[in-house]
């Protein structure tokens, strides 16, 4: 666990793999968008509108996955005091907000032509909106403290409490009557999406995943660099004060 606790070792590793995850991201987005928007068939019911799925569904997956990453990192931070866990959790939050916003916006655009409405307060849509608010509260809490240690502690507790929303989002369509349809992929009895549509969806899912990894590494490196600059500036101030 503490093998990667050393920020120097982490930075070396991150520098090494980041170009590869970035390349994989661009490749998957290129292939995925072509398959999703051009090469995949229309739906028997929704016709071309179904193509919104290839943007919407991976965004929804990643919105929840990013929150799971933050929750696990927060657990590691609280229990094992792993120095990189706070950095990872803090760096992941704005990416999660972006995924959640994409999910809600494309879902709204998809709802109008298929359901006949931009928005309804059913359990699935509402619980994802709550996820967006938890993300924003989490980020606000981080910047509400001057002391980084205290901010990290408070934010980690909020992240763990908010994790209760993840199963609610996932199972909202099974526990309650909702306008949103039930799960198509992770369900008993296998996916109910035709293989010709499942493949582009999987490639787009990978593209989003590589996007997440790439941007997470970039943001973690930037955060560590900013901390070092701050520490160096503090040392300079101390050094100037001592002779005087």
């Amino acid at each position: 666990m503490h093998r990667f606790a050393n920020p120097a070792r982490f930075l070396r590793l991150a520098r090494l793999i980041q170009p590869w995850t970035a390349a994989a991201m661009f490749a998957c987005f290129g292939v995925g968008l072509y398959l999703a928007l051009v090469a995949s068939p229309i739906d028997y019911l929704q016709r071309d509108t179904v193509r919104i799925m290839y943007i919407h569904v991976p965004a929804a997956w990643m919105a929840m996955q990013t929150y799971a990453v933050i929750a696990v990192a927060s657990l590691v931070s609280i229990v094992w005091r792993h120095p990189l866990a706070d950095v990872a959790a803090r760096a992941a939050a704005p990416i999660g907000v972006a995924f959640t916003a994409i999910c809600l916006i494309t879902g709204s655009l998809w709802g109008k032509p298929t359901w006949g409405t931009w928005w309804v307060w059913d359990a699935r849509l509402t619980s994802v909106l709550v996820l967006l608010f938890i993300y924003m509260g989490y980020m606000a809490l981080w910047s509400a403290f001057d002391d980084r240690q205290r901010a990290a502690r408070a934010a980690a507790v909020l992240a763990l409490v908010g994790a209760v929303n993840l199963p609610i989002i996932k199972f909202s369509v099974d526990w309650w009557n909702t306008l949103h349809q039930p799960a198509s992929i992770l369900r008993r009895g296998g996916p109910t999406i035709d293989p010709s549509m499942l493949k582009p969806l999987a490639v787009m899912g990978l593209a989003y995943l590589f996007f997440f990894i790439t941007v997470l590494l970039m943001r973690m490196r930037a955060d560590l660099a900013a901390q070092r600059l701050e520490a160096a500036a503090e040392r300079r101030v101390m050094a100037q004060e001592v002779p005087a």
């Binding site: 068939p41 739906d43 019911l45 349809q181 039930p182 799960a183 035709d194 549509m197």
Partner: peptide, 17 residues
Amino acid sequence: SLLAKHDENYMPPEVAD
């Protein structure tokens, strides 16, 4: 007001046919 609800199945028209 009426809202349409669709199910969890997605497939090309040929497959549906």
